[in-house]
Structure formats: structure tokens, C-alpha cells
Design a binder for these strands. Structure first.
Lengths: 112, 112
DNA sequence: ACAATCATTCACTGATGAGTTAACTATTTG
DNA sequence: CAAATAGTTAACTCATCAGTGAATGATTGT
């Protein structure tokens, strides 16, 4: 049983509320990257990036992996399941919304 | 020209990062509600709700409308465009991700 | 005009979060 | 072993934000 928790929609939203972390996600969409690469390409310090990555990890947005050939290097990749969790939340809202629209239509038709 | 700005994905994410505001969005998915109703059903104070609604307004997540019959009553409804903006952002990430997967597949096939 | 209702704004508090520099751990390389 | 590299942790500062109670604004009812 893996120790890292599954994506929780609340934490995912918090994670994606920060612009730097959204940039990280966008970069990781193009493939796995090292922590240092992310810090450099985004233009933030290493400590700041480390903290951001920890938030993304705990939220289940990214996963980490140490390189077998050089264990200093920590590689991060996207976990699309987290995005799917956000989508599911949006779907839930939109489903209720559509249902409401249906009721409204029926109401209008009954009045005509 | 309406004074409220269109949905900005950055502000939408910030708005949805708060659990109370997500509850508001969920309730509004079931139809328009007054500020007081939202405060009561969620169990928060009126001032707090007012602030949350202002954030949601500025982010373009909700729209407000004063009732013609009783101008004290301010009714809030969902603006689905904001959710669509979030979806578009997710789509953009996932598109890059899928493209990356394609490249990976081709790489594996070439190696076999 | 006066009271009641619905909601917002103000002033304040406590908590959280992002950034920085410096120190530290772990790993690889000469 | 010593130096260099990759990254995290620690201690601190600053800003932001959510909540609260009190006061205020705006509108309706008597």
C-alpha cells in the first residue's frame, strides 16, 4: 500500500490556487522534470520550489521518483488522476445546474 | 458595458480554494439563492458570507441581481463560464500530457 | 417618521502561506 | 578524504485572508 495519499479535491484546489504551482503543473504536462529544472525555468529559488513541490505531492498532483543512476536527482511527474478529481467536482456542479435548467424549461412551457 | 470582469482562471482557482466558497458554488448549482439563505444553510455569519460572495463575484464565478419586487434582496446565481475556464485550463495540461504519452509510445515501439 | 429586515462595510484578531538566507543532509566525483 | 552538486529543512519576515462584533446603508412595512 503506497504511503502517499490519493488526490483530495480540496487539497488539489488549494495547490492549484498558487500561480507558481500552476506553472509547475504546466511544465510537468510536457514531461517529467527535476526540481532544479523547475526552479530555474520558472525563476524561483530552490527552497521555494521545494516547498511548492511538497504541497503538490501531498495533494496528489505530482509524484516523485529518485533517479537510479544518481540518487541526488529527484524527478517529478504529473498525476493526471488529480486533474480528473477536479473534473469530477465540476461535473457534479454542472449536472445539478443542468437539471435545474430542465426544471426551469418545464416551468416556462407550463406557463405558455 | 457591465462592470464585472469576465472569469479569470487564476482568480477562479483562488476562489475555489476555500471550502466555504465551494459550498456556495455547490448550493448555487441547485439554483439561485439569496445571501442570507447561503449564510444560513452553510452555517456562517452574514459578514463572512458577504466577503466570500465578493470574491466569487470578482472572480466571475457568480453573478448578482437585485430583485425588482424587493431591492433589499440580492440574488446570486452561478456563472458556468467560470467552470468552463477551469476546464479549458485542465484540457490544456492534459493535451500536452497526452502528446507526451504519444511520443513515449513511439519511443518504446522504436526500441522493440 | 419609525421600526424592522437584508446585507455590506469597518476595525480588529489569529492563522496561514510564500519568500529569503543560512545551515544541513545525502550523494557523487576527483 | 575533500570538494562539488542536488535538494531539503530551519528560522524568520511580510503579506494576505478568514472570522468576529459593532456600526452603517438601503429598502420595505406600519
Amino acid at each position: 500500500m503506497p504511503r502517499r495519499s490519493g488526490p483530495d479535491v480540496a487539497e488539489v484546489f488549494v495547490a492549484l490556487a498558487d500561480p507558481t504551482r500552476r506553472q509547475v503543473v504546466q511544465l510537468l504536462g510536457g514531461g517529467a522534470r527535476r526540481a532544479g529544472e523547475l526552479a530555474e525555468q520558472i525563476g524561483t529559488s530552490a527552497p521555494a520550489m521545494s516547498r511548492h513541490l511538497r504541497v503538490l505531492l501531498r495533494a496528489g498532483v505530482v509524484a516523485d521518483e529518485r533517479r537510479p543512476d544518481d540518487a541526488r536527482l529527484r524527478v517529478f511527474r504529473l498525476r493526471p488522476e488529480s486533474m480528473i478529481a477536479v473534473r469530477a467536482w465540476l461535473d457534479q456542479i454542472q449536472a445539478e445546474w443542468d437539471e435545474q435548467l430542465q426544471h426551469f424549461k418545464q416551468h416556462v412551457e407550463r406557463r405558455s
